[in-house]
Structures are given as C-alpha cells and as structure tokens.
Nucleic acid binder design. Structure first.
Lengths: 346, 346
DNA sequence: CTGAAAGCGCTAACAG
DNA sequence: CTGTTAGCGCTTTCAG
C-alpha cells in the first residue's frame, strides 16, 4: 500500500496489474482491437479510469501509431489558413488523432525541416497546405507517411490532393470587373519562376486564369501582372508599382485577401478612393473581407470544406495505404462587395 | 553489398556499424555529449552524412528528450498570436528544437486535451499562450513538463510567466481618450466570471485597468463595460449593444484589435463615422491596425519580444528544472492613429 | 479469447 | 575515451 513514486507515469503494466489481466489485453482494449470479451473490456476500462491512465504516445509510436497528424501551414498570418484548420479539426476532433501544426514559412528549407520533423516524430499522417517544395520532395514525404497536399494542383500517384479551381476563380474576378466596364485590370501575383511548379501552384494558376480570362474578353493587350508575394507587404509594394504606371489600372485583382490589404493601404496613401477611383478584388473571402469598412470583393474557396475533405482523405489513406489517390477539386464562387464598381469616366 | 530494404529507416545501429564504433558513441556525438574524441566525432559525422541518418525522435523520447516544444494558442484567428510565435521561432530556430502548435480554442476542455496530448507525446517543454485553464491545471502541467505561461499574470512557483502590463496598457488608452476630451468611454471585455481567474487573465486586467483609469480621471460615473469575447463577432455584438444606449458612448475601447474589427463593422453599419462620430481604440497593435484604411489606435505589447522571452525562459528551465521561476513583465506603448479624435460637439 | 515474450530505436549506467 | 548491456512503454507475433 505504498503510494506510487512521485513522478512515475501510470503505465500499461500498472493497468494490467490493477485489472488482473495481461498487458496484451489492455493494449487491445486501448486500440479497440479484435479479440477481447466484453467482460475483459469492462474490467480494463474500469482500471484505466481508476488509475487515470493515458497511453504514452511516444512509446506507442515505436511499434504502432502515434495518433498524431501534422499540418504544415505556409504562413500563419494569412487569415485564410485558419479556415482550413477548422475544417480539419471538425473531422479529426471526433477521432483519437491530435492535430499539431508547424509553419513552413514559405521556404523550401523550412518546409523540408518541418516535414522531416514530422516524419521523425512518427506522425501517422500529414497535411501539407500550399507547399512550395518540389514535387520530388512531396512524393518522398508521401512515400514515408500518408500525405494529403492542399491547394496545389497536379496529379500524384502517392498523395491525395484537395484544391480549389483557381483557373475558374480568377476568371470570375476578371469577368466581374470586365462586366462592370473595366479594361485596365491588373493582377498582383505571388512570384513563381520555377517551371516545374508553375503548373501546380495555386498562385501561378490564378495568374494563368487571369491571363486566359483577359484574352477571352479581348483584353490581351491590357494584361498587366506584377510579381510579389502573397503577403500584406507584397500587396503594398505591388500596388505602388501599379499606381506609378503612366496609364494606371482602373482595377486591381489581388491574388489573395492578404495581398488586398496591402493594396488598400497603398491606394489609400496615394489619396485614391475605392471604388470610385479604382476597384480592388481579392481571393479567399476571409472574414477580413466581409468586414464593414473594408467590404472587399473576393473569391470564396470554402476553406472549411477544403480542410474537411483533406481530413477525410487522410483518414482513408491511413486506413488503406494502397487505395488509389484521389484529387478533390472544389468550385469557387464570387462574393461581390463594395470595393468594386464601374471605372471612373475617362 | 546489397541495397537496404526499401522502407527500413536508417538507425543508430547502421551508423555505428558504418563508422565502426559503438552506438553509444554515435548517441554521444548526436547529443554533443561530453567524452568523445575529435576523430570519433569526425568518423561518426561522416557516417551520418553517408547514410542520411536522422534520429527517430519518438524513440529518443523514450529515454531522453524528444526535441519538441509545444505551443498552445488560444485562437489561431487572432492576428496577435503570430507575433508571439515569430518571437519564439526566432530563438528556437537556432536550436535542435522543433516547435509544434495546437489550438486551445478558448475552452477548458480543449486546453486540457491539448496539454495532455503534449505531455503524452513527451514534449520537452510547452508554452501556453493566454490559457484559460485553472491555475491548478497549469501547475499540474508544469509539474510534469517545463512550462512557460504567456499573457497571464500571477506568480507561480512551478512555471515561468511572460506578460504585458495590461493595467498600464488599458490606462494608456483611457488617458489618451480622456485627453482628447472624451468622457463617455465604454469598454468591451472578454467575459470572465471565474473569481479565481479574474486576478490573472489579461482580459480581466485590462477591464480593471480601464476602471481604475476612469476613476483616476474622475469618470467613475461613466464606466460602461460590455462583456463578450475577444473575437470579431464579440466586438460586433458588443458594439451593437453600446450603440443602442440612449446616451451612446463617444469612444469605445476594444480589449483587442480583433474585437475592434467587429466594432468598426457595427459602427459602419449604424451609419456612424470614425472618428468624427465615435472614436475606437484597440489593443495588440497587430499589422491589421496599421493598415491605411483602418489606421486603428492601439496598444503595442511587442508580441515578438514576448515570444522571444518565453523561448529563452523555456530553454533555461529545460536546462535547469530547479531554478527559481521568473516573471517577465513587458511595458506596452500607445500607438495613436486615425480612429481616435476629439468627441463630436455636444 | 488470453497471455508470455520479443523488440521498436534510442539513451543511461556501468565497466573496461 | 569507448563499448556492453539493460531498459523506456508499448504493440506484436506466437503459443496456449
């Protein structure tokens, strides 16, 4: 009857002893595995409750699963990503899996470090949101751990993907602006120079969608793209360039809402009124866009659904690593608000 | 000379064999531990490079450290928290530690789940940002794993704290508004009813700072607090209540910038102009506040410094779990922008 | 259906 | 300074 040593954790052995069964049985109950009688289960469950036992995930990982899912986010400042995380959590909350996130910082080195860290920690699955890493690296990761890639196009035989139809999304914006009467519609993109990634990255596809839509409207001569980054700063600098043009655009299509925030900033500093002097549209329809004083026209890509789909695909793949990969593509919609209006009279 | 089995990880045994040394030696080199000759180190390093070996963190955790630090964030939407994370990462990036984050979702149950998950995964240390859990729970966690609590006041003998002087911060806002000539200054707080937490939570202390400052300016009869939450939605609903008052306030002090976004929304919908009809101030000085069209007066609490301090304290505590706990308190500053101005003439 | 025993990859004692 | 050995807590064969 002596008290347990101050800092020793309750282990499976303690539970087994308390319930008068073997550790194997306890382990089976823990995993809801096949082959335990109801009485055994009840006894074990009681012992677990009595002792306040929780399995040590690190140890479980040595033989089986860690019940941990890693989510790599490119940028924790972009208000779009929380939507995806919410969608993931909605699904995973009901399961035994714990979600752990890490910032990829929009850099190949940082992303490699994060993915390696997740692999080394024995994570059962990973969700990579808008990764910039090479396809080779993504497939390498997916070869080791079940992987879902979010927001990146392209078909892979080893990982599942969930993405938004960025080509269509960009066209929605261009058409909306052209319908309002704009011709000089400029675009601010997140710079992408690697040809191997151009076909896959959402930012590159939005830019391509912009080009195609401009051509479709007979505005090929008005195509005007500034390359910066999907950050507030990127939007600010990009807009400054555009506003300095001799024939400045009457509308700016920012590749992401976070970019639009910087654009608004630059436009306001230039003493221009939105939408009277210039129209602004974003992409992502973050809660920021809906905000009264901002009221930004934006493309909604249903981040929560994206996240939920990613979670489901990941669970399926964890359950069966050999099933064929799936590509889920969701359709965006345009939410027109007060930052877009007909252009000022020439 | 046969190739290694397709999917077996390279282990410390492989490295030891390749370098013709014992696993102990490899382990020591890995940890930069005392007692290895330069030649040994070189040989081992070479073998590690040759084989592309990376230690399996889950296994290391069984005996020693996992080289993982957990960060619990209450709300991944609040743009203030990335600042803290950046500060943490600045320091931890140089070390072997990997930062993994999880959302506490502003709920006691969710927080318990997250802290347990971190403990169960053998994390070497945790940073809890603005936790709402009971002090008992915090001390329980800190008794198991080195812990730094951020943004919560109160002295503990088992965990270190880093916080902002919220009492002063709130006073800065009230004084600023009172100096401009406001008397009917209202405050929107994040509701706190648990008496045990009132003395510790930053939201409660900001509210108290507001009360004290109002009294100090002889405005005790004008004290007007609405209790909601530190979210955009909370700000929106809180402002709607305030604007419906028969004698509506001429200034609203929102307890956080994210709250101010909702306030701006409600004010705009009510057809009021900022700052001509009503002044608005926030707290946190997020990048959103600096934004041109918003230009929100706010209190800067140097999130990056908070994060860096937390990281340093945590590393110190991991190195020496018996050193006395420290309480770092940083001083906020007011950043006056365009959402505050003298009240409209009565 | 249940249990005994081996071992996952690593580190910590302890010898030499 | 280096190596041998014994586990960490759990899951997994494999017998009973």
């Amino acid at each position: 009857m002596e008290p347990p040593a101050q800092h020793r954790r309750v282990t499976i052995v303690d539970v087994a002893r308390h319930a008068q069964v073997s550790t194997t049985t306890v382990s089976k109950v823990l995993r809801n595995a096949y082959g335990t009688s109801p009485q055994m289960r009840a006894k074990v469950r009681q012992a677990i409750a009595d002792l306040g036992y929780r399995p040590y995930a690190a140890a479980r990982g040595m033989r089986g699963q860690t019940y941990t899912i890693g989510v790599m986010l490119p940028d924790i400042r972009n208000p779009f990503f929380p939507e995806i995380v919410d969608g993931l959590t909605d699904i995973l909350w009901e399961t035994d899996y714990q979600v752990l996130m890490a910032p990829g910082r929009n850099g190949e080195k940082a992303e490699a470090r994060v993915t390696e860290a997740m692999i080394d920690r024995g994570m059962d699955g990973v969700v990579l949101v808008a990764p910039i890493s090479s396809r080779t690296h993504l497939e390498h990761v997916a070869g080791i751990v079940p992987t879902v890639v979010v927001g990146r196009h392209g078909h892979s035989a080893v990982y599942d993907t969930v993405s938004d139809d960025d080509l269509t999304g960009a066209a929605l914006v261009v058409d909306h602006l052209a319908d309002l009467g704009h011709r000089r519609i400029a675009h601010i993109e997140h710079s992408e120079t690697d040809p191997r990634r151009i076909a896959e990255m959402p930012n590159a596809i939005r830019a391509e969608g912009y080009r195609q839509a401009m051509r479709a409207r007979g505005l090929e001569d008005e195509i005007d793209i500034v390359s910066t980054t999907y950050t507030q700063q990127g939007g600010y600098l990009g807009a400054q360039q555009l506003l300095a043009r001799p024939d400045r655009p009457t509308a700016i299509f920012a590749g992401a809402d976070i970019v639009a925030t910087g654009v608004l900033q630059a436009v306001s500093e230039a003493g221009l009124a939105v939408p009277d002097d210039i129209s602004i549209a974003g992409y992502d329809n973050t809660s920021f866009a809906a905000l009264g004083p901002i009221s930004l026209t934006s493309v909604d890509q249903a981040g929560r659904h994206i996240g939920a789909n990613a979670a489901k695909l990941l669970l399926e793949r964890i359950a069966d690593r050999t099933r064929p990969t799936a590509q889920v593509k969701l359709s965006p919609t345009l939410v027109a608000r007060r930052t877009t209006a007909p252009p000022p009279p020439a």
